[in-house]
Design a protein around this nucleic acid. Structure first.
Lengths: 323, 323
DNA sequence: GACAATGATGCAACCGCTTGCACTAATGTG
DNA sequence: CACATTAGTGCAAGCGGTTGCATCATTGTC
């Protein structure tokens, strides 16, 4: 049985309130008493029970982070950055995976509600309405989705997509295929709109697709049939899968078709050919999200919108279009 | 302000204890009362506060899962399986990443201690002694490491490594390089011992290496210099990195050198050449770990040891040795 | 030397929920 | 019909902390 605050109080001959203050408001207790209490606590292996503390303070010092699919390599850097950053603020981040299921997502949020001070919602699959409703119970910050009235961290997908398309057209590609993502994806919609707005390109939309290698692999034939020579994929995973599919069909990248991905995951750098991609500032997004969330927890929270810059990383999967 | 049990009690004209029982021991309350209370609760948007409940019951219905590096694709399937399986038992699992840092790992465990009923320690970097010490505070189950007196889930690395080496020697490879993992790794040690015990092979050990693509990439030259024609890599990531490094130096896989990985991650199936690998039953391990942990939480816990079978998946990265 | 200010500690209520025990009324038994 | 069960509910004491307020020395001030 772990030592409680009362054990420490008794063993050090002071009242529990003094022990409590020794930990949560040290300046209120006499230096001498404090060291004695700390010594006893150390001796007994006492550690304040955060859950019990949360009951009275209303602060758990925990944050929840919800992602749709933890195996998507896009998320881990974000998660790690968020955890590391939160730790510097004496907060801990618990991660949960919804398995792309909105129901699980909602259930998870409700479970989390009382156990954390706020939740980071990354690429949520829930409807905006559902998010707004749940927001009544716990502070949110949403990453990769625009929900009005809520702190939001966005990455500048439009700009990135624009760079990618300009890069492709600059290489002489006129017919460009856009491999979209899952149907509910905000990022995918942004890409669509950007591509549609780009002048002088002959656009074919292929999808929606699963945001995975399999998703890209599955549409290789369709891409070939479309006659496009340039492809902008929903993300790197899709791009990698596509390249593999094209390869299996004897189509060379970038000789025959140029492919650009989105995210800049590690695997892209090790792919053959190395992937040209729109780099997303995932780590920065993770930190920013934690900042906004903590601010929102403390101040009651303004609905700040942070948009992070993206950039194009040109590697080997794109090249001059055939004459 | 969220509704509490008292609000519900008052609004439905019963005592708080009745409301409490409505949720945690429904059979003890009259059907009629129960429906009325539930209706009021629904109406007020009341949800029991799990943290408060945990204070009296001593059960949070949460599990912690600690991994060294969430971006290692080996873990996500394990995590997902554990989460899904735990959910069927009305438990939730929170994931935390230690960033390969034993100090962070220890700190995380201590934070978790009071907030979860048990912790899944996956490929821990902590010393056995430290693990045993911390075990006094919270039930553990250890995955991928043998710690005596503790429930443990192991994958049969020795058998897998044996299969890989037999496969390689069967193809005529006599000189085999073993790319080891991080120095503290139990898996790596198992592989060493198995390889050393295998007769008729000329073994070169290269490492320790980071368990990542970069780790494999970095030793390509060394592998070539070693004169080995067969390689068993610590994991698929290392194997993929190595293959990339060999390719950059004009060495063909499997024509010149055969490579086998360990884990069977998705990326291995999409690599070029597709990776021959020792498949690890990660999802099964996740489920098993949850089972053992829950059992340990309930029964006080026997120190069961579960060893899961591994198998060899032969794909394209291994071939006949040069004459 | 009287009095106010200050610093350190104790007291006790409370956070939201559970649970052993006591109580009442309805039911079953001989 | 007396009595033992049983079902349903209320009571109140916790679980492990925090915190506003009261108390009591000390110290400083005029």
């Amino acid at each position: 049985m772990a030592a409680t605050i009362r054990d420490v109080a008794q063993a050090s001959g002071v009242h529990v309130s003094t022990v409590s203050r020794t930990f949560s408001a040290p300046h209120l207790v006499n230096a001498e008493t404090r060291t004695r209490v700390l010594a006893v606590a150390e001796d007994l292996g006492y550690r304040p029970n955060r859950a019990a503390r949360a009951l009275t303070t209303g602060r758990t010092h925990n944050l929840g982070l919800i992602v749709a699919d933890i195996s998507n390599p896009f998320f881990p850097p974000l998660i790690k950055a968020a955890q590391a950053h939160a730790r510097t603020r004496d907060y801990h981040v618990f991660v949960a995976d919804t398995d792309e299921d909105p129901l699980v997502e909602e259930e998870l949020i409700q479970t989390l509600t009382k156990q954390v001070d706020g939740v980071l919602l990354c690429s949520p699959r829930l409807s905006n309405r559902a998010i707004e409703r749940l927001h009544a119970d716990v502070p949110f910050v949403v990453v990769n989705r625009r929900v009005k009235g809520m702190p939001t961290v966005l990455m500048d997908v439009r700009y990135g997509a624009r760079l990618a398309i300009d890069h492709l057209t600059g290489l002489g590609h006129r017919r460009i295929a856009l491999l979209s993502g899952p149907s509910g994806s905000w990022t995918s919609k942004e890409m669509h709109e950007t591509a549609a707005a780009a002048g002088g390109v002959d656009l074919v939309i292929i999808g929606p697709n699963a945001p995975t290698e399999e998703g890209g692999l599955a549409v290789a034939a369709e891409v070939i049939a479309s006659g496009a020579t340039g492809v902008l994929a929903y993300n790197d995973l899709v791009a990698i899968g596509l390249i593999e599919g094209l390869y299996e069909r004897g189509v060379q990248v970038p000789a025959d078709i140029s492919v650009v991905g989105v995210d800049d995951i590690v695997a892209g750098r090790l792919n053959r050919p190395k992937l040209t991609t729109v780099a997303m500032p995932t780590a920065a997004a993770g930190r920013m999200a934690v900042d906004l969330l903590l601010q929102s927890v403390d101040d009651g929270g303004a609905a700040t919108l942070a948009t992070l810059a993206t950039s194009l990383v040109v590697r080997e999967s794109t090249g001059q279009a055939r004459a």
